[in-house]
Design a protein around this nucleic acid. Structure first.
Lengths: 205, 205, 205, 205
DNA sequence: ACATAATCGAGACGGTACGTCCCGTCTTGTT
DNA sequence: AACAAGACGGGACGTACCGTCTCGATTATGT
C-alpha cells in the first residue's frame, strides 16, 4: 500500500482548497454590515466583498444568492444562552428580558435586532433560519424555566407556557422597538415580569 | 380685482394647476405597493410612477423624497377607531386585539402592519408620523378602556395601564409576526386577554 | 389648423432627446483611446465611458456592441483627400505617399494607422467600413492621377493602374510598419515612386 | 558524486524533471491558436493550457509572460527557405511571391501571416524575434537573387535592391491582406513582378 | 385671441450594483 | 521539483434600476 492518507471514501476534491480565511472574512463583513444598520435588502454583495477584501467571485462560488449568505452568517452568530440562577421564576424571567434588552449594546447583538426588525414575509428563508438558530434554543431554555415554575407551584398549574412566552417576549421587544434609545430600559424587565405574574385583575376578583 | 374664480383671498399661481387626479393616483399606488409587501426601503419612485400611470417628475415635484411621500400617503390612511361595547374590560380588550389581528386581511390594513414591521431607526420621520396617526388615537381609546376598568374595580387599582397596553399589543403583534398565515389567529385575542388578566402566578400565592 | 410644427410624417419620439454632446464625447473618447494605442480588442467600453464622462448605459443605448461603436467613430474621422498639384504624375504620387507617411504624426492619424494594423479577419465589419471611408475615396483620387498619367503619356498605356496602386501603397505601408520611428521617412516617397516609375529592369533590355 | 545519469558536467537539479512532452504540447497549442486566428493580444495562457491539456502553472514556470512564450513558439516554426531555380530573376521573384501567398494555406503558415499582421509597436520583442527568424533569412535569400540580377544585367545596375524588396513584399502582403479569401491569388505574383520589372513609365520616355 | 407659465408623460442622463466570465497568480495533494 | 486542478483578487462585461434632467405637448390664467 502506497501513500494514502485516509481510508474514507470521500476524498478531498482536486485543486486548491477553498480558503477558510476568506470565508470567515466574508461572514464577518456581512455581520458587520448588518450590525452597522444595513437591512437585508440594502446589503450589497459588492460592499461585502470590498469590506472582506475579497473578489466577488469568491462569494458567489460559495453562496448563490444573498439570502443563503445571510443565513450562513447568522449561523455563525451563536446567540448565547442566558444563564439562569434557578432561585425563582421571577428572577430568571427578569434575567431573560434583560438579555433581550442588552442585546443591542454590542455589534453582533445589534445584528440580531436588525434581523428581528426585518419583515419575515420578505425573506422567509432567512427568518426561518434565524428562528431556528437564535429564537428556538433560547425559547426552550426559557420554557424550561416556566415549566419548572408550574411544577413547583410558582406559576398557575393551567398556565399556557407557550402563550406566556409570547406575552413576555412580545412586550419586551415591542417596548424596545419604540424607544428612541433602545439601551435605556431601566427597570422595564422587572416591571413587565411583575405585572404579568400578578395579572391585571385584582386578586380578590 | 382680477378674474378670480374662488372666494379665497390667496390668488392661485399662474400656469397649469397640478392634477388632483395624479396626486390621488400616486398616493393610491404608494399604499398599494406598501400593502402588497414593499418595505419602505424597497419602495421605489419608479414603481410608484409606473403603477400610478404618471411621470416620475410629477412625483418629485410634490415630494422631495420617498419618506415625505410615504408620510403623506399614510395620512390618507385612516385607521378606524375600534368601537367598544363598554360592557366589560375583557370584552373591549378582546375587541381591540381582534382589530389588530383583522387588520392584515384587507389591503390597506396590511399596509399598517407592513409599516409596523419596519425598522423605526431607519425611517424615523415616517415612523413618527405613523405613530401620531395610527398609533396614538387608538392607543388613547384603549387606554380609556383600561382606566375605566381601574376605576370600576375590574382591574387592579395600582395597575400600570401604560405598561399593560405594551404587554397586550406586544404579545399580539409579536405572535402575528411569526405566524406563517397572519390571518389565522383563532382564539388568540381571548387567550391573551384572559392570561394577562389573571396573571401567571396562582391566585393563592 | 392647430399647433403643428412641420408637415413631415416623421415626428420626434417622445421624451428627452439623446444628447449630441454625449454622443460626440463618446466618439472622441473612442478615437482618443484607439489613437493612444488600444487595439480594437483591448478597447473597453468602461474605459470609453470613463474618459467621455458618461454612463455605460448611454453608450449601450446607441451601439449594441463595440464594433458598431468603432465603425461610427471611424465615420467621423474624415481622412482628408490629398490635394494634387497636377503638374506631373510623379509629383502627385510623391504627394500621396507623403500623406500616408505623415498620417502617424497627429493623434487622429495614428488612429487610422492603428486600425490599419489590425487584423481584417477578426473585425471584418470594422475593416469593411474603414475601407469604405478611409481607403476608397483616397484610392479613387489617386487612381484618377494614374489614369491621367496613362492618357497624357506619362505612364505606359497598358499599365494596370489598380495593381500600380497596390504596389505603391503596399510598399509605403510595409516600410513604415517596420520602421522603429514611423515619423522618419526621409526621401522614401520619392525613392519608391522613382524606382517604380522606371522599373527594375534596365531601359535597354 | 551524486546520482547523475548524463556525462555532462552540469549537475541536473534535484526533483522531478520538466516534462518535454508538456513543453511540446504547449508550443503546439500556442501555434495552433495563433494559426487559428488569435492575435497576440487575444491569446490567453488559459486557452493555451486548456488546449495543451496542461495546468497553467506548467506554462508560467517556463515563460514569465505571454510574449516570451510566443517568441519561443515562433522559434520552432521554421519558415522554409524558397528553392530558387536560378534560371532568371523574374522566375525566382515569382517563386518568392508565390511562397508568400501560399503561406496562408497551411496551419503553420497562417501563423506567420497572423504575426505579420500584428502591430509591431505593441509587441516589439515578438516582432523583433519574428523578424530575425522568419524575415531575415528569407530576405537574404531574395536579396541574393536581386544582386545576381544586377550583376548579370537582368536588373538595372543602379537598382536599390533593398527598396526593391520592400516594393515586392509590400505589394504582395498588402494585396493579400485585403483579399476576402487570401488563398485566391491567381496570377498576382506574375503580374506584380512583371509590372515592377518594367516600370510604370513608357519605355521610350 | 394670444402670450405666459407651470404641469404633464416620456425617456435620456450619470451612476451603482448586479451576476458572469476570464485573466494571471497562488496553493493544495500527488507524482 | 514539477504536475493538474482549481480557488484567489481583480477587472470588464452587459443589464437593470435608481433619482435627476430635459424635451414637446397640454392646460390653465392674464391681457
Amino acid at each position: 500500500m502506497t501513500t494514502q492518507t485516509t481510508t474514507t471514501g470521500a476524498t478531498r476534491p482536486a485543486g486548491r482548497p477553498r480558503s477558510e480565511k476568506a470565508e470567515r472574512a466574508i461572514i464577518e463583513a456581512t455581520l458587520d454590515l448588518i450590525g452597522a444598520g444595513s437591512s437585508i435588502s440594502e446589503l450589497s454583495i459588492e460592499a461585502i466583498a470590498a469590506r472582506a477584501g475579497v473578489g466577488k467571485t469568491t462569494i458567489y462560488r460559495r453562496w448563490s444568492n444573498k439570502e443563503d449568505l445571510v443565513v450562513d452568517a447568522l449561523s455563525s452568530l451563536k446567540a448565547p444562552l442566558p444563564q439562569f440562577a434557578g432561585r425563582s421564576v421571577r428572577e430568571d424571567l427578569i434575567t431573560w428580558l434583560k438579555v433581550i434588552s442588552t442585546e443591542s449594546s454590542d455589534l453582533r447583538g445589534r445584528c440580531v435586532m436588525n434581523i428581528l426588525n426585518s419583515d419575515p414575509g420578505r425573506h422567509p428563508r432567512v427568518m426561518e433560519r434565524f428562528h431556528e438558530l437564535a429564537i428556538k434554543p433560547r425559547r426552550e431554555a426559557v420554557l424550561a424555566v416556566l415549566h419548572r415554575g408550574v411544577e413547583n407551584g410558582e406559576l398557575r398549574p393551567d398556565l399556557d407556557v407557550d402563550l406566556a412566552m409570547t406575552i413576555l417576549n412580545g412586550a419586551m421587544v415591542w417596548r424596545v422597538k419604540w424607544l428612541s434609545d433602545p439601551t435605556q430600559t431601566d427597570g422595564l424587565p422587572e416591571r413587565i415580569v411583575d405585572e404579568v405574574l400578578r395579572g391585571f385583575a385584582p386578586a380578590s376578583a
